[in-house]
Design a protein around this nucleic acid. Structure first.
Lengths: 195, 195
DNA sequence: TGACTTTGAGAACGACCGTTCTCTAGAGTG
DNA sequence: CACTCTAGAGAACGGTCGTTCTCAAAGTCA
């Protein structure tokens, strides 16, 4: 309860651990990073680490949950900055473009987690599924707001998924531009086709 | 040089190792499978395994190379079965659809390998890049054969990539259908736009 | 102060991994 | 029959991992 002890940061200990772990896991993969390295990067004792997250699996899940929240707010902000429903749909790809520019970009953390841990930890596979489903329904809401048939939604989501893996593997952020161009054509076609 | 010794199969030892390793790696991930398990599944001695592949990295690369070859011939066969240039482009997604039906489908092996090992083994990242680039140029050749602008190619490739990850994580092969429908719209738009 | 609790640093543990080594049995050769 | 060479089975090795334990220092409260 002393005030001096927690003066340095408003960060909770768990937050510091999660953000350190996220940076390591995302950059190098999950199994390539040990708990000891997470402890060092977060600057906490091993005991504290394990009392916040009882296992590595729990830590991975916490990291993914934070990543999901950051993704959701990032996309929502980019969409909110756009004006027309059509531009709101395209804003997703602009957000992707700015993400791909980041030097540390290495693909979608959920796709990576699913590939590496999905069959070892069903909880990870489930979280990845939830993340993608949540994105799908968000796109669906934008599509219906735009007045287009909802069959457009999975198509636009597919472009976003493909852009992420393509940009990661090729190292070229232009995939976002291609996705945006394709989305623009699909949206126009869907809007032209409505009754 | 005796005939009796190799009567059981025409398989070379290396082939047996690679196909056993591929099944294990693809299903469970690379780091989750040890060399000892590969040896048991392939039915060879540890010595023979290491004299065929001097390290796990070499085995992983061999597995990925075979996967690349199988993918290329699979796509090429599906495309060859189609008649018109437009149908040849759409045949890619039919091939994806049949792949997604496979119970063991768990996404693109190269995307998974890139996520798990890409930053630990640059050779894996390079192979994944080569694989995707090769697919891109194949799509490009189909697009130009169809007489469409070559800017269509990366868009169609994006749909294929997105379908693979979406189908893997959701466990639902319908992503191939969505990708095909989107591709159909994009192709029609591109063909209508040519001079 | 003194008993009790909490904490941090890191040693320790058991399991497993990639890789190498040992040892033995069998085949080929003179 | 003796001698060499190969190859298979698996023990062994050094390292690392996730997790737990030890122990001493620091804090808490009567």
């Amino acid at each position: 309860m002393t005030v001096t002890a927690s003066r340095t940061l408003t960060d909770d200990v768990a937050d510091r651990i999660v953000s350190a772990a996220d940076a390591l896991f995302y950059t190098r993969g999950f199994q390539a990073v040990g708990m000891d390295e997470v402890r060092t990067a977060a600057g906490v004792s091993l005991k504290k680490l394990y009392q916040q997250f009882p296992s590595k699996e729990a830590l991975v899940l916490a990291v993914l949950r934070v990543r999901h929240a950051l993704w959701e707010t990032g996309v929502a902000e980019a969409v909110a900055a756009a004006t027309t429903p059509r531009e709101k749909l395209l804003a997703m790809y602009d957000y992707l473009a700015s993400w791909f520019q980041d030097d540390s970009f290495r693909g979608c953390g959920f796709i990576n987690a699913f590939g590496e841990l999905g069959s070892v930890f069903p909880s990870v596979a489930e979280l990845a599924r939830d993340h993608k489903e949540s994105f799908q329904s968000y796109v669906e809401s934008l599509v219906t707001s735009a007045g287009a048939d909802e069959s457009l939604a999975p198509q636009l989501a597919l472009l976003a998924e493909g852009a992420q893996t393509t940009a990661a593997i090729s190292g070229n952020p232009i995939a976002a531009t291609h996705a945006r161009a394709a989305a623009s054509v699909l949206i126009d076609a869907a809007l032209a086709a409505r009754s």
